[in-house]
Design a binder for these strands. Structure first.
Lengths: 180, 180
DNA sequence: TCATGTCACTAGCCTAGCTAGATACCTTCA
DNA sequence: TGAAGGTATCTAGCTAGGCTAGTGACATGA
């Protein structure tokens, strides 16, 4: 939780000096740009804090939580969720998934049912109480975000969408590399 | 990495139906709002993917990485970084921090020096190559974000800042609760 | 100066990943 | 049709990275 000694103001960190001067912005604008970056970081941290609070409340690890959400959404969508699919989604081995499902089953969150057509396989089902709790919580936090986004004008939404998409694109593709 | 069967369109998930109708938006606007939420999620995922790629490249766990960043930034700032401070920042025990520093030292990233004034304590120093790699990488990704934020107009930056701050505030404070 | 607090470290435990291999079942094709 | 090979889950046993408890060296305030 929370990284960041907020000192990544590019005017402080010397290799970044050059970026600033290249940008040709005046000081007030630089402050504003830095504020954009800071608010990105703050949101990310807030978001992490919140999901960790949920995890602690439900006494689940991060992966177990993701698994539960995947199972719930899959079911919501009428798909048969199998251990293999969960492993693939989470990017962990099927062996680890077996243990994960054991934990979730022991905690009363899921149960395994025989797969209707493939007798090697298994369908994972979320028990009612967990399903309800999860949907309420996801729903609530989703609603808050929805309301905030709905409160913007069309033009403002476009600005936000474009900015975030550009950010995502920039992180994904280009000069990926090195360190910290 | 990557959660999210993107089906959190509130028109699909029934408890959210009500949110949508309350908002009084037409369909085109709802699409746009959903797109805002989607781009938030996409950025977060991209960001996570990137930092995981870095971690894999440096063969470090997430906590070890955070520790390194903390140490580097602390040094950048002229502070004497001690194991205790690292433990406090990361929210782990000092015992775990001892092991963490053992790992980082074994991998050639840091070394321990005697604390100049407190002979019980220790100062952690990042070795040159690691420091350089980390700063380059942080600098590079920081520069890309900086450029994107700099490319916005003042008004656009204000929109983004306000939206993200509101989001962060909304996640932190209010009805925190339950589940998934 | 001496009692108490603080710092890093050691020892030993637990959880949640992993790989390898077992078992049951499905599928394809000669 | 039946044999070979592929696939799904599970078991066994390992490792990494957390934890708590306790130690020894040092700091500090009465």
């Amino acid at each position: 939780m929370s990284d960041d000694p907020s000192l990544f103001d590019p005017r402080v960190l010397d290799p970044a000096q050059e970026i600033v001067s290249r940008s040709g912005l005046d000081d007030a604008e630089i402050d504003q740009v830095v504020e954009v970056l800071r608010s990105l970081r703050l949101w990310r941290e807030a978001d992490e804090r919140m999901s960790e609070a949920s995890r602690r409340y439900m006494k689940l690890g991060a992966t177990d939580m993701r698994a539960l959400r995947f199972i719930i959404v899959g079911l919501e969508n009428g798909e048969a969720v199998t251990p293999g699919a969960i492993a693939a989604h989470l990017g962990i081995s099927t062996a680890s998934t077996t243990k994960l499902l054991d934990r979730l089953a022991a905690a009363g969150h899921i149960r395994r049912l025989p797969h209707p057509t493939d007798r090697r396989s298994v369908v994972v089902e979320v028990l009612d109480e967990t399903r309800r709790a999860a949907r309420d919580s996801i729903g609530r936090s989703h609603a808050r975000r929805f309301d905030l986004a709905a409160a913007l004008t069309r033009q403002q939404r476009d600005v936000v969408i474009r900015f975030l998409r550009d950010l995502a694109a920039t992180e994904d593709d280009p000069s990926r590399d090195s360190a910290a």
